[in-house]
């Protein structure tokens, strides 16, 4: 397992979080409102062009970590450095600039897309907010981003409900790509998709990573997909990193009991000895 001290030696890191803490007050349960330490000193290192997977049970802090790394949520303490700049100490301008470089994709594309807008408007929205290009140029770029994720130009004027689940997720990816980010944070982004659609989105993510040197933070409970996509795996349990290793290390020689528990809980598809490709 890599300790936090060892992590500090990584020099080519793009995004580097240290000692992240975040506390929520949760209502419900049998007793009174409960303070939950969602993140309790978490460190993550994201290197250009690579994929870090974050796994753990629900309540382990996966999504809070994703939201903190995407700068949608401010941790109570800790640091998040993007190319060396401490974003939690930085002024608003540099945070806005960094936010464009770090984009997030959510589980349910239907609720992440405005149902009244057309595909091209949705994809072009980040450009509109940035306010540099005129409408015609925005549309041209939006169509370019759609093409990159395999959406046809003739679908530009369709609304989300006229697209399938896989197409909607592609649309969300196109919107995330239009500001040319360096990191995509994928919070269960494949979970709502059918198997055959998942496979295509995975291939798209790999193609984009190869052509743009994109880094992914891949949050998922689907361990078979994690094993396929990730270079490094971070295992969270109640807000703490309990194991951090290469994908082969975590899956072949899990060291922490909780990692073994997670692996044991997931049914693995047995295959014919002859193998189907």
């Amino acid at each position: 397992m890599t300790t936090e001290a060892e992590l500090d030696d990584v020099s080519e890191s793009l995004l580097s979080a240290r000692g992240l803490r975040k506390r929520y007050t949760r209502r419900g349960g049998w007793s009174k409102p409960l303070a939950v330490q969602a993140l309790d000193g978490v460190a993550v290192e994201v290197v250009s062009g690579s994929t870090v997977a974050v796994v753990g049970e629900s309540g382990s802090g996966k999504s809070t970590l994703a939201r903190c790394l995407a700068l949608l949520e401010r941790p109570d303490s800790g640091s998040i450095r993007f190319r060396g700049d401490d974003l939690l100490a930085a002024n608003r301008r540099s945070v806005t600039a960094a936010r464009r470089r770090i984009q997030m994709i959510f589980q349910d594309p239907a609720s992440a897309l405005d149902p009244r807008w057309t595909a091209a408007e949705i994809v072009g929205e980040p450009l509109r907010i940035r306010g540099r290009e005129r409408a015609r140029e925005r549309r041209r770029q939006a169509l370019g981003a759609m093409e990159q994720v395999g959406l046809l130009a003739r679908w530009a004027d369709r609304r989300p409900r006229e697209l399938s689940g896989g197409q909607r997720q592609r649309l969300a990816i196109a919107r995330a790509l239009i500001l040319e980010p360096e990191i995509l944070i994928l919070d269960e982004a494949l979970s709502a998709l059918d198997l055959s659609v998942q496979a295509r989105i995975v291939n798209l993510l790999l193609d984009l990573q190869a052509s743009r040197d994109l880094a992914y933070v891949f949050i998922s409970h689907e361990l078979s997909m994690v094993r396929y996509l990730a270079d490094e795996v971070v295992v969270l349990q109640t807000g703490k990193v309990v194991e951090r290793d290469t994908v082969a290390g975590v899956f072949n020689e899990p060291r922490h009991p909780h990692t073994r528990e997670l692996l044991a809980a997931t049914p693995v598809l047995e295959r014919a000895a002859a193998g189907g490709g």
Partner: peptide, 15 residues
């Protein structure tokens, strides 16, 4: 459909 399920082993590292 079964072929779309990622297999049990790592398929190499990186993009």
């Amino acid at each position: 459909l079964l072929r779309c399920v990622p297999g049990g082993a790592e398929k190499g590292v990186g993009p």
